[in-house]
Simulated assay, not measured.
Amino acid sequence: MKSNQTEITTFEGAAGVIDCAIDWPVDEPVGWALVLHPNPSQGGTRENKVVTTIARACVQRGLVAVRPNFRGIGDSAGSFDEGRGETDDMALLVEQFQKRYPDLAAGLWVLAGFSFGTCIGAQLYARLKQGGEALPHLVIWAGSAVLRFRHGPVDAPADALIVHGENDDVVSLEEVMQWARPIDMPVVVVPNAGHFFHGKLLILRELVQTRLKSL
Rank of each mutant, 00 (worst) to 15 (best):
V208H: 11
E175G: 06
L128M: 09
H151C: 11
S214H: 09
R84Y: 03
C58E: 13
R205G: 14
E86N: 03
V51W: 12
R67F: 08
L138D: 00
A105S: 15
V26Q: 13
K49Y: 11
A122T: 01
H37M: 04
G13C: 04
A145P: 15
Q42V: 07
D168Q: 09
G121F: 10
G85R: 01
V187T: 03
P38H: 08
F197G: 01
G78Q: 03
L63T: 09
V94I: 15
M185L: 15
Y125A: 02
S76G: 05
D81H: 02
G43R: 11
L92T: 03
A57R: 11
T10N: 15
P38Q: 06
R211N: 08
Q178T: 12
A134Y: 00
G121K: 05
I22N: 10
L204R: 13
Q60H: 11
I18C: 06
P25T: 12
I22F: 11
I140Y: 07
R71A: 05
E166R: 02
A134L: 02
V154D: 06
W179V: 12
G113C: 05
L215G: 08
I22T: 13
C119E: 07
G132H: 00
V187I: 10
V110Q: 08
K2G: 05
L63W: 09
S79A: 14
D81N: 11
G62N: 06
G13Y: 03
T45D: 04
Q178I: 08
I120C: 04
L212T: 15
I140W: 05
H198E: 13
W109R: 07
A106H: 04
H137Q: 13
L128K: 04
N39W: 01
Q5E: 14
E82K: 15
L111V: 06
Q96S: 09
P102N: 03
R211C: 07
K2E: 14
L204N: 12
I120E: 02
L93G: 01
A126E: 01
Y101P: 10
R67I: 05
L173E: 00
G44P: 05
H37E: 02
P182Y: 09
C119R: 07
L104K: 08
K200L: 01
G85I: 02
E166L: 03
L124N: 11
Q98D: 13
F149V: 12
V170Q: 15
P153G: 07
K99R: 14
V35R: 04
E47P: 00
A126T: 00
C20Q: 11
H164D: 02
R71D: 02
H37Y: 01
G199D: 06
M1P: 15
G44E: 02
G74T: 08
A91D: 06
R100G: 13
V171G: 08
G85T: 01
R148Y: 14
V171S: 10
E7Q: 15
L36N: 04
F97E: 01
V66R: 09
A122P: 00
A55M: 13
L138A: 08
H195K: 10
I183D: 14
M1L: 10
L135Y: 05
E7G: 08
V51A: 10
S3M: 11
V51D: 11
P136Y: 12
